[in-house]
Every structure is written in C-alpha cells, then in structure tokens.
Design a protein around this nucleic acid. Structure first.
Lengths: 236, 236
DNA sequence: CGACTCCTTATGTGTAGACATAATAAACAT
DNA sequence: ATGTTTATTATGTCTACACATAAGGAGTCG
C-alpha cells in the first residue's frame, strides 16, 4: 500500500520551499517586510529554531535581507549568484565519462619575471618553477595549464619533475592555502594555445586564472586555457 | 580599561576557525577521518548542536565530506569554488563610484528565430521582444546587453519601450523567476560589439549569458558583452 | 559465494528555552 | 533643535534532549 505522510513535523526544507514560493510567486513581493520569526513559526507550526534556519538559508540564497531589530525583508532585486565548483581537472573530465590524459610540455626554473613579481608580490630575484601542461579528455586536448610556482615558498617543487602527475594534483595534496583569487576572462589565443588547443591565432579563449597564497606568501599562479567553445555553466 | 573576554561559551565561529586551521595547517591532513561530533563537542567544550553547525559550515566551504554513519572526512582536494554575486549592472557600476548611464539602441518585436526557440524551448511562431542596450560607467561603454523577452509569457513587455529604464531592472522588479541558467564564455567581437564597445572585430569578449524560466515557461535570454579587458574576479 | 536481513552508529534535524547582540525608537538632557 | 542615554525588539546563537535517517557491517540463509 502507498504511504504518503512520512512525518508530521514541519521540516526546515519545507518551510524554505514555501517561503521561496511566497517570494517568487506569491504575496511577498520585493520590499515586503516579513512577519517576525515567532509569528511565522506559529503560522507554519514549527519551532522558532526551525524557522530561523529556514529564513537564514533562504537569505543565503539571495532572496532575503535580514537585520536585527529591523526584521526580515525581501530584497528588491534578488542577488543573482553564480556558484562554480571547480574540482581538479582530472575529476572534471572523468565525471563526463571520458578518459583523462596528461602531458608535460615544458618545465623550467628561472628568476621570476617582473610582471609575475608584481602580480604575486614576490621579492627581487625570487626563483620560480614554470610549467606548461596539457590535459586531455579521451585523447583530445581539453585544457592548457600554464603554471608558476614560487620555489621560495615551496622548495619541494624544484625536485618534482611533474612528468606523470600534474602540478595541480600535486599541489592540492601537498600544500594548504589560506587565500585564493580566481578570475574568469576572455583572452586572445597565442602561439602556444594555437599549438596545443583547437584554436586559430587570436581566437577568443576562455581562461581561468587562479592565484594562491599561504600565510601571506605566494604559492602559485596558474592560467587555465580551455578548448574551443568551452563554457562554464551553472543552473539553479 | 580593556576587556577581553566577551563571553565564556564557545561559539560555532570559533570552532569553525579552529577546524579550518587544523585542516589547512595542522594535524588534519587530506583524507583524515575526524572524531565524531559528540567527541569533538566534548573536546571543544560546546554542545553537539554547535559542533554540528560548525562542521556543516566548514563542509559547505568545501573542506569536509560528511556522510551518515561513515563520519566526517577531510577532502583529498578541497573543492575550489568560485562564487560570484551579480547585482544589476547599475549597482555594479555605482558601487565603483562611477556614474551610471543607459541607452536603448534598438527595439523590435518579432517571431522567435529558430536558434532562440531551441535554446529556450519556445513553441512555433512565438513572439519575442528583442532589445539592444548599452550601459555606461562615467560615460564610457561598459556593457552591451542583447536581450530577448518571451512575449507569450510576458505580454507586458510589448507595452514597455525601455527608453529610460533598462530591461534588467524592469524585469527583476516585475517578474519572479524559478529557474536560472548562467554561463560564462569567451566570444569573438561581432559588428555590433565593435560599434559600441572598445573592441576590434574578432577580439575576445567576455560574455555572460543568462536564461530565465518561470513555471516552466521561458521568460528571457540575455547576453552581456563586456568592455575590453573585463575580468570577473573573486577572492577569499 | 552472493543476496538478504537486521543491528549499530554517525550525522541530520526537530523542540523548548535561555541569553546575546545589534539597531531602532523613545525618552531625556543639553 | 541636537546629542545622549535607555528601553525595546527582532534576529543570532547556545544548550540539552529526542527522534529520524542513511549506510556500513555482521550475521544468516540459500
């Protein structure tokens, strides 16, 4: 036989759903001041604790603006937020069912060029490891990784040859990080990208740039250039 | 006189900070299985409720993987997540201290072209409003907005002329949404972009594309092309 | 050996109650 | 009128406790 009622208590998820619905389709238009938590809890038949959690999470979704004493108000324009989870490339590729491949194209140790020193805040004559790697999905070039590692902060990097394990995977397993800066940008394909990805010179390339610090010392800067037509998409 | 101790109870934020520290700099390396909530709560001198919240939030930061019965484990590679908050353009521009400007370039009502029908799931001969607008920061073109509005779902759009208020602001104030898809991509500058933004033909342009549905009906599709050199950046 | 059941366990979530804190509003003093 | 204190109030968070639920693991049966 079919059972419907799984429980009698009102869960915070149900409350959330109802609140979101009232905001997006119902009586709580932009700017509305909601009743207090106590009153709402009473109406929904749940405890204030539960109502508090529901409101907090809806607020984190970007719909509500909450202030002590002032109360809970529906945002005039909901904050559109795009949240991208960026696992290591290997996982990203394997998740699509494709076979992951990796190739080290170049490796050199040198004194950090000026632009890099400025970008990461390195001191003069800082030594860095520069790597160029390619990640494949089912044998097709998927992502070109241009990475700089601060050898001063991470001397171990000098001993790694990165011929079989990508620097990304090595880094996440080796060093923690305390601060990260991620940028998305459109760049023009340069000679290196043309050589390894399916691009013509000057083609628009979707790039992700990520800089990482640990305890105020720069660890690494990486630019990930993607294959032709790549989009970063999120849906909710 | 200076007071230090504000409270005696351990707050979930303090617990969070300590947990993150133990993960990033301390004994809890990648893969570590943490003690259970009860045990941790005892160690930290807080209730399990508080410990639960702390662990839940650290988990949302991408450091922990929690499963019933299996326990809480430190992720092998912390999930790098980029979270972008995208307010309406006006706010984005005004937040930088610049003066916002708006101009409607073109407005037409037509039957949805095939690619759009496919993209949004419109039915045959659906009528749409097509708009082309420009957003300025201190008089300089900042963003080119290419928007399509499904007139079937939103007949009011036919009456709006959008000469002074941008469709974005009008939409967020008028219709709710239930589903959103956001993509970031790199496109080649076309003639329209060249005419209005500081681009040469074929230049890489950073674009944001956003499609919105409400109750399973497509509402709008917009492509936002940004000025030369634009980057979307987040830091944490 | 494999498939099934049942028990155990760690997290997930709900409740009631209390105190903390921020921010507004009212009362007060200058 | 203006600046300052004080009260009020809605949200923020902690506690102790209880039950729900998912999933690993042991035991059982063919």
């Amino acid at each position: 036989m079919a059972e419907i009622a799984k429980h009698e208590t009102t869960t915070f998820r149900e409350v959330m759903a109802e609140i979101v619905q009232r905001i997006t389709e119902g009586p709580w238009g932009p700017g509305t001041l909601l009743p207090g938590e106590v009153e709402l809890a009473e109406e929904f038949g749940c405890s204030r604790t539960t109502m508090n959690r529901a409101l907090r999470e809806v607020s984190e979704l970007g719909f509500l603006d909450r202030k002590r004493k002032a109360g809970t108000r529906v945002r005039m324009a909901p904050i559109r937020q795009a949240r991208f989870e960026m696992p290591v490339v290997r996982s990203e590729i394997e998740k699509t069912g494709a076979i992951y491949g990796y190739q080290l194209l170049a490796r050199e140790v040198l004194v950090a060029p000026d632009w890099l020193r400025g970008r990461l805040g390195l001191k003069a004559r800082a030594r860095v490891v520069h790597l160029l790697c390619l990640h494949f999905a089912d044998g097709v070039a998927f992502q070109l990784e241009d990475r700089w590692i601060n050898a001063g902060a991470l001397p171990m990097a000098l001993e790694q040859n990165f011929s079989t394990v990508g620097p990304n995977e090595w880094l996440v397993a080796t060093v923690p990080f305390s601060e990260v800066e991620i940028s998305f940008l459109a760049a023009a394909a340069d000679a290196v990208m043309v050589a390894h990805l399916d691009h013509a010179l000057g083609d628009p390339v979707f790039c992700v740039e990520r800089a990482t610090w640990w305890q105020n010392a720069a660890v690494t800067l990486v630019t990930l250039a993607h294959r032709r037509g790549y989009r970063m998409t999120t849906r909710y």
